[in-house]
């Protein structure tokens, strides 16, 4: 059954004297919906940054489709099928919605297509496709506007769509549900399920446990830079280390609320 699209082997990383990641190893199975959770400061975003090439690990390997990503600059990893969104929305403030989404396609185009005017050759420059994708996700209304004026939930959604435009194999989502209200979270979940049904593997960081529970099958838990659990999400609540480090508090509150 094991067919990992992403394999992390003993990843370690420090900033100054602080050990942020300590020999983190786990696999993300192809086509799975995998969550990475842990308290604030556990090293989740740093791990994402190591995977996407923003930081080099001091030790260990990142293997995508079995190939070591060492030495491949962050810019070229998107061509290997890796795409990501960000914890704080990082859309381009002066670009329109459509342009932001088109930026996501950048890695798929050759130089010759890049020097064609977008308005006159919408097909070969990918503009037509970007409009179509926006429409299919129900955000056609906003395509002419610059993104800074849009509501938070919409911007989150646009960031996911932008990440999809590179046709990734593996999508890294850093807290996609943070700051969303219940309705927006539900919309996002449906969107991500649809993405997953297209065969794209999801690895996501989030603090919203009901959201993670209803979306992911696999979960890895980190605490203080170390991996303390890796397995099916159904067994998560049976794990003592996890209960102690992270979920115990949540569960108690959840029960007392119920």
């Amino acid at each position: 059954m094991s067919d990992p699209i992403l394999r992390l082997e003993d990843i370690s990383k420090s900033f100054g004297g602080v050990r942020v990641l300590e020999k983190v190893s786990f696999d993300v199975e192809r086509g799975s919906r995998h969550a990475l959770i842990g308290p604030n400061g556990a090293g989740k975003t740093t791990l994402f940054n190591v995977i996407s090439g923003i930081h080099d690990p001091e030790q260990g390997k990142v293997l995508l489709e079995g190939k070591d990503l060492k030495g491949i600059p962050s810019r070229k990893r998107i061509k290997k099928g890796l795409s990501r969104s960000f914890q704080n929305i990082r859309l381009m403030p002066h670009l329109s919605v459509l342009e932001n989404v088109m930026l996501g396609q950048h890695s798929r185009f050759q130089f010759l297509d890049m020097v064609k005017p977008l308005n006159f050759s919408a097909k070969s420059t990918g503009k037509a496709e970007a409009i179509e994708t926006l429409n299919s996700f129900g955000i056609d209304l906003y395509e002419g506007q610059t993104v800074s004026s849009l509501p938070y939930g919409i911007r989150k959604k646009i960031e996911v769509v932008r990440a999809l435009m590179s046709e990734p194999q593996l999508l890294l989502l850093d807290e996609p549900a943070a700051g969303l209200n219940t309705a927006e979270t539900n919309t996002l979940r449906d969107l991500l399920k649809e993405v997953s049904n297209r065969g794209i593997t999801l690895l996501l960081v989030d603090h919203d446990m009901p959201f993670v529970n209803s979306l992911c099958e696999q979960v890895s838990v980190m605490n203080f830079g170390q991996l303390i659990y890796d397995g099916p999400i159904s067994d998560l609540k049976k794990d003592e280390k996890v209960l102690e480090a992270y979920l115990g508090m949540d569960e108690k509150t959840e029960r007392s609320n119920a």
């Binding site: 996407s52 923003i54 962050s74 810019r75 070229k76 990893r77 998107i78 061509k79 990501r84 960000f86 990082r90 381009m92 403030p93 002066h94 670009l95 342009e99 088109m102 930026l103 996501g104 950048h106 890695s107 185009f109 297509d113 890049m114 020097v115 064609k116 005017p117 977008l118 308005n119 420059t125 990918g126 932008r162 590179s166």
Partner: peptide, 28 residues
Amino acid sequence: YIMSTRIGLAMRAVHDDEAVADLMGVDK
């Protein structure tokens, strides 16, 4: 003309956020 192409789009992306443009595959 330059600004109406994908190159122009990439230029404006580098202007707005170099790090993200880089992750999108733009050779900044």
